[in-house]
Design a protein around this nucleic acid. Structure first.
Length: 259
DNA sequence: ATGGCCGGGTTGCCCGGA
């Protein structure tokens, strides 16, 4: 079974590439982030034509997540139970469902903006709520994983130049401690293979030729429990999908499982 | 080849992204 996660940076703008990518890769379940459309604007009909069911948590121009599956989509939970508000709203940043033998989450963790910003505190609270919400499944026997844009680089090797990120969000000890807490709950980081260079990045800024210069970050992650990680046969970042006109600034992360 | 931001809405600029 092939599972993937991809921050598409607008599903409307990405639709032609998304449909072509699903067909060419034969992905069974895709976790999508940054739909940037409301649920009424989600292209469920186009996906259904390709044989995929959709579950969507989205409210408009910002954020928005989805699960797209051709191997079943049951027991959908929209949102992060117990999650914090930001400026009085529960932003659409999480959705979970059972897809065949797997229980999966698609998450878009808050960015944080700047260390000390209200959004940064919101990010840390959001992580704590996530840890609490997934604890039982993380410790369970069913293959389980949280996939998505975590907006944290787990180690200094996961950014192209650690000096550039000093004092910035995405690399602070508090954010990395939130990942450690997920590991203590029973999850571990499924490290993808790079298709080029020594280290896999998943995000490259659109500006300043970051992609050709490989100035990237690994912030799109797959955190699986033991039954999930033992079923993993391969994983890679599809950097080919970052190339050319009409690309998202994130590349898909693909995981192949034997379940 | 992979090439100097992009997407969407409150549009002909502004915000957010990381």
């Amino acid at each position: 079974m092939r599972v993937a996660t991809w921050n598409v940076n607008s599903i409307t703008a990405r639709l032609p590439r998304l449909l072509a990518w699903l067909e060419s890769t034969g992905t069974d379940v895709l976790c999508i982030q940054e739909t940037k459309t409301g649920e009424e604007g989600f292209p469920a009909a186009e996906l259904r034509e390709l044989g995929y069911e959709s579950a969507v948590n989205a409210t408009g121009r910002w954020n928005g997540v989805a699960l797209v599956s051709r191997v079943g989509l049951e027991d959908v939970v929209k949102g992060l139970p117990g999650g914090p508000d930001y400026e009085g709203v529960q932003e659409p940043r999480a959705i979970s469902a059972t897809c065949g033998p797997l229980r999966l989450w698609s998450v878009y963790v808050p960015n944080g903006r700047e260390v000390g910003h209200d959004h940064y505190g919101y990010k840390l609270s959001w992580f704590e709520a996530l840890r609490a919400a997934v604890a039982a499944d993380a410790a369970g026997q069913r293959p389980f994983a949280v996939l998505g844009d975590f907006n944290v680089a787990p180690t200094d090797a996961d950014v192209w130049d650690p000096a550039v990120f000093e004092g910035q969000t995405h690399v602070t000890p508090a954010e990395r401690a939130a990942l450690t807490a997920l590991c203590e709950a029973g999850l571990s980081d499924v490290m993808p293979r790079p298709l080029k260079y020594d280290h896999p990045f998943t995000y490259w800024d659109y500006r300043q030729l970051c992609f050709p210069k490989n100035r990237g970050m690994r912030i799109d992650l797959v955190y699986g429990n033991k039954p999930f990680t033992t079923a993993v046969k391969d994983s890679y970042v599809d950097r080919e999908e970052r190339k050319g006109k009409g690309a998202s600034d994130h590349a898909p992360v693909v995981v192949d499982l034997e379940v």
